[in-house]
Amino acid sequence: MGTTGTVTLKDLAAALELSPSTVSRVLNDPDEGSSRWASAETVARIHRLANELNYSRNPHAASLRTSRSNMVGVIAPSLQDYVFASIYEGIARQASTRGYYSIVSSSHDDEQRRRALTDQILDRHVAGLIFGDAHLDSPGFFADFAKRGVPYLLVSRRLPGELSVTCDDYAGGRIAAEHLLGTGRTSFGVLAGQAGASTAQDRVAGFIDALTEAGIPDSRITAIYTNFDAVSGREAMAGILDIAGVPEAVFATNDFAAIGATGLLRERGLRVPEDVLMCGFNDTPLAEGVNLTSVRSPMEQMGERSMAMLADLADGKQLESEALMPEIVARASTRR
């Protein structure tokens, strides 16, 4: 018994001859019949003894004692973004498997909002945070955050020196270039996306490097940075047409930008793929619906790995960043 006369988690673990972490995870699991932490027999023993001894868990007190709970905070660039929604599906699924639950908020890619949300989430004594809205031009936030001693990592977007789980976006850009080069095209437009996001920078870098190595001169490549949505794709496509004329092929760093650009081309009397080939990125369900060739990124797997790594970080493990490989899914928009 604890010094106050109440039954503690440590008391239960000692009586059952189990580790406190195992007992804690079983009792904190929302599915009491779950055997993911121990055998079904052991789970039943833990719950039976807890009931017999009138064990009562106080989540707030526990979080104050340990500065940690079984809650994980996730900050997304946008809750309307299909890509991050898919990533979050993976996070939530893995969180449940690991005995955590997650909450998600959107920073709208605004650093001040991210700072405010982070403070609010930390007030709830979370076990850790996953950030999906990192910007290459604002690394100072994470340097400051690291001093707080709370486990965290980045997902989807990377920053030098920060632990992250991403798609290998540079490789994805090269894959797109190699696919379009294989069609014999020699002039290219690039709907580059958001300039401050590593996803955009790395995909564009991989794409242009592959073209350069194939002998395509800079004068045959026009890239415009806007954002990742359909409206931005239209704007960037219009800019490319105004600056360089009609390219033979277009690479968009996001499927939605590619779809917006396709609409703009149609309004200008141009056809995909007859006049312009179009390749997107991420391979969202909408890409398949409109026969858009796209580089498939492992969105849900990124979420699963980021949550698994965060749980390992909370357990004190040393980890390295991971970049998961993409693949091309060829459809009608790039057929010769």
Rank of each mutant, 00 (worst) to 15 (best):
A146Y: 00
K147F: 00
R148K: 10
R148P: 01
G149R: 04
V150P: 08
V150C: 06
P151L: 01
Y152Q: 02
L154W: 09
L154D: 02
L154G: 02
V155W: 02
S156P: 00
S156Q: 11
R157D: 02
R157P: 05
R158L: 08
R158F: 10
L159Y: 09
P160K: 12
P160D: 12
P160G: 06
G161D: 09
L163P: 14
T166I: 05
T166Q: 03
D168S: 03
D168Y: 15
D168E: 14
D169K: 13
Y170N: 07
A171M: 14
G172V: 02
G172D: 08
G172C: 11
G173S: 05
I175F: 14
A176R: 13
A177L: 12
E178T: 04
E178F: 07
H179S: 04
H179N: 02
L180I: 02
L180K: 07
L181P: 04
G182Y: 09
T183Y: 06
T183E: 08
G184L: 12
G184T: 11
T186L: 11
T186C: 06
S187M: 14
S187F: 15
S187Y: 15
G189Y: 13
V190G: 07
Q194W: 07
Q194P: 01
Q194L: 07
Q194D: 04
A195N: 04
G196N: 10
S198G: 06
T199A: 12
